[in-house]
Design a protein around this nucleic acid. Sequence first.
DNA 1: CTAATCTTGACCATTTTAGTCAGGTATGTA
DNA 2: TACATACCTGACTAAAATGGTCAAGATTAG
Lengths: 141, 141
Amino acid sequence: MKLTSRGRYAVTALVDLARFDNINPVSLRDISLRQGISLDYLEQIFSKLKKNEIVKSIRGTQGGYVLNKNPNDIKLTNIFHAVDEKVKTVQCKKESKKGCNGKATKCITHNLWDELEVHINTFFENKSLKDLLNNNKETRV
Amino acid sequence: MKLTSRGRYAVTALVDLARFDNINPVSLRDISLRQGISLDYLEQIFSKLKKNEIVKSIRGTQGGYVLNKNPNDIKLTNIFHAVDEKVKTVQCKKESKKGCNGKATKCITHNLWDELEVHINTFFENKSLKDLLNNNKETRV
DNA sequence: CTAATCTTGACCATTTTAGTCAGGTATGTA
DNA sequence: TACATACCTGACTAAAATGGTCAAGATTAG
């Protein structure tokens, strides 16, 4: 079970963005430099974030990205969903033949994986960008 | 974030094993047939489970595998650890240059990933094979 | 006009995954 | 003793996912 760097970068970049977008739009170049993430890769990621209406873009010189919602309303769930970082612990479809089985015996660990998925998703649903900003201030020292 | 099938199979196979090992050792062939997991793959998995003293093997005709501990003492953590299914949400090492940064600014989402890792591991540490056996009875109908 | 930005899509090397295959070795039973 | 049933081990591999890079535009402030 691991997080992809795409998901990690998305969150990191948004936290960075949230800290600076009060005055001007923030360019990916700046985020790239500050967070050490490849510019080209950031572009891919922000393209998805934009499609999912998490950020807005402003083109041209002095352009960049701005949050499209209140940091309080951007949950980790939303971010991960936007960049296709999905939590997938259950392999079996409802009535699929493969993974879970179409046999008489039900998939004996199905409930477990379901529970796990809920457990993880709960964490993501309760965590907002705002929380991360606060959390970061606290530990900045 | 997804579970590998190796981890999933390991747990599934052990639940199956736990249900039948009261009388005789259980052969991988049986587990393979009942759970629809490739025999060759199961052998790889059980080799690791054995090294980690989660199961014992009995060779020869009528042989097979037996649990090496009380189902109550086999936590998901132990199983996943045995088959190298690791929970890895944090990329950055303590003082590494890559991932987390050696810069003045600390990795701004470090705490978050740490929290997430703890959250998931807690789930695994609190879940034993025994729980799964009970859970399965309840839902068998 | 031109530099700074966003925009889009193709491409690719590496690693991981999820196995398969081909041989063994040990042992209970007939 | 023969032999079938298991376990045991290591090498191999196809396919997918990952983590990017690269190239070529389109917009717009100054």
